[in-house]
Design a protein around this nucleic acid. Sequence first.
DNA 1: TAGCATAACTTGTATATACAAGTTATGCAA
DNA 2: TTGCATAACTTGTATATACAAGTTATGCTA
Lengths: 237, 237
Amino acid sequence: MEKKFQAIYDLLAKEIQTEKIKAGQLLPSENELTERFTTSRETVRKALQLLSQNGYIQKLQGKGSVVLEQDKLPLPVSGLTSFKELSRSMSQKVETIVTSLSCKNAHGLIQQVLQCEEGTPVWELHRLRKLDNEAVIYDKDFLLNELAPGLTEEIAGDSIYDYLEKELGLSISYAKKEVVVEEAQAEDKAIMDLGSYQQLVVVRSAVYLEDTTLFQYTESKHRPDKFRFVDFARRTK
Amino acid sequence: MEKKFQAIYDLLAKEIQTEKIKAGQLLPSENELTERFTTSRETVRKALQLLSQNGYIQKLQGKGSVVLEQDKLPLPVSGLTSFKELSRSMSQKVETIVTSLSCKNAHGLIQQVLQCEEGTPVWELHRLRKLDNEAVIYDKDFLLNELAPGLTEEIAGDSIYDYLEKELGLSISYAKKEVVVEEAQAEDKAIMDLGSYQQLVVVRSAVYLEDTTLFQYTESKHRPDKFRFVDFARRTK
DNA sequence: TAGCATAACTTGTATATACAAGTTATGCAA
DNA sequence: TTGCATAACTTGTATATACAAGTTATGCTA
């Protein structure tokens, strides 16, 4: 049985996403929700806490919980809209090409980034992402073989995470990311459709499981005009 | 009086930051903490929830709360270290120059991004950030005059947020951000030390107060080699 | 009518209790 | 000694209660 507060969160999140409850409106009060779901107020509050954390609502003491507008960053100052087109185009043609998948024994850099023993078998996976037939994203993944022994090109072409979570029962817990801009290497220029772009946005991320083991290290290179990162952040200090 | 769970959070966060409790170690159990702070377990759990959210600890059912390493993204793959130098250099010479501060009546784009009435008085603030005597960051801020009527160049040269929170009692609650790469404009080239860089990392952010009013809109342009964005994210789906 | 105290809401904090679920150490039994 | 059930921990979920603090509507009073 799914946890109660999670179920309430899922339900309310869906109602907000589908605009059954629209931005600017108030959610039912905590007491009303408590009755509706025949639960306790604390449980409702846990669900609301999640909604707040993920940018769905803002809680106002004495008033209630207002639904926030989704994403909606006010218009960009310049007339540039290329990145908006990109975000809209998530539904457009996206193609993933596995350019290499091999299992190596960790050494030097790989061993360092995965923080594992020398010689530990690790997958090295290279994927090229094409948006509208242009190769604009190039991903290099390193992951512990031990945790995903049955990795194949087919799986790699899909979502690795689905495979991990649904097939292997592993659960990703948290990640650390870094975004920088670097010169395109010869390899990048050879394999990507870079045109005259000389620099790439590089996203390096370390992905951890629930037990804090570092599971995956990824370096994702993006052609600058096709890169967009959106973030919602609350303040805790 | 400060809230209890907040106080516990602050104390534990400090202990982790100063490495009184080191990465890899376990925090005292919830029951022990409950005793130490003469409080209830739920209150301790609220504090731990905050620590978890902010990447200080990972909770393991049945075991305890392990302290995570701070930031520590495994080594970058390439030999490039310029951005690391930058992050280290936060203590190096940083200089802020207010290049313009004026109060205008909102119209067109400004009115649009601040989502206010036509004609509402708004501050327009331009600041140039110099790192080691190089002008590498250029910020344009728009903020509602109504909420910060006493803004001056001196304050703007400092931290605006300190002024807002400590002087005006306003509290920033959340922000939406977008990171993209765009061509440097003529103005950017004129005012920044760009060298041969033709593109800039642009961070656009909308800052909201607790009552969900959009208070500030910022466009921050960074010379690519001096830009670095680090993120810790937990998974909620 | 206008103003104002107050009642009736809302969310925020703090506490107590019970049991479920996962991990580790204990100690008995073969 | 080894193996295994179990006890004694740990965190996770759910519930109930009390009062504080902020907002809004009510309705009385001048």
